[in-house]
């Protein structure tokens, strides 16, 4: 009854109610199926045979089976190619910081940069010094009074 090309309906499991074709007979109890279901080994107890037989070769490929079923007006979802999915988890902070650091242009110490730094510091010191002097003068005045 379960010869190659027999159209069946799966009764048990998560593919229950879906149509499939027998591709290979493995054993007295097991066959290989493909179609609307996943391509897998299946117990005969989990199949309900229909009255149609599709002409297929032994171990026919998934594309061939889908094409044959389309002719019988049974539509199957084409299996998508497994792509390398990028994880949707938030990336760790350390890794992000590393990437940012790499992207930044590195500081190169040159003579010019050093000189400009020195000039800046000198100007700041000059600006601060008179204030300190004034404070000291005020303190002296207070002590005299």
């Amino acid at each position: 009854m379960f010869e190659i090309g027999r159209l069946c309906v799966k009764i048990a499991g998560r593919d229950a109610g879906k149509k499939c074709v027998v591709i290979d007979v493995l054993d007295n109890n097991f066959v290989l199926i493909d179609g609307q279901t996943r391509r897998r080994k299946c117990n005969l107890r989990h199949l309900e045979p229909l009255d149609k037989i599709i002409i297929l070769t032994k171990n026919a490929s998934n594309d061939e089976v889908i094409r044959a079923l389309k002719e019988e007006s049974i539509e199957c979802e084409e299996k998508k190619e497994a792509k390398h999915k990028q994880s949707q988890r938030p990336t760790k902070k350390k890794a992000v910081n590393k990437k940012l650091e790499e992207a930044k242009p590195k500081k190169v110490k040159t003579k010019e940069a050093k000189e400009t730094k020195k000039e800046n510091t000198e100007t700041v010191e000059k600006a601060e010094k008179p204030e300190t002097k004034k404070k000291s003068v005020k303190k002296e005045q207070k002590s005299v009074e």
């Binding site: 048990a12 998560r14 229950a16 109610g17 309900e48």
Partner: peptide, 23 residues
């Protein structure tokens, strides 16, 4: 269970029901 009528019918009754529908 992740099958048609999962959580509503037992596995035996789903088999009977699907068989009846196909026939």
């Amino acid at each position: 269970p992740e099958r048609p009528y999962g959580g509503v019918l037992c596995s035996k009754c789903t088999r009977v029901k699907i068989k009846a529908m196909t026939r």
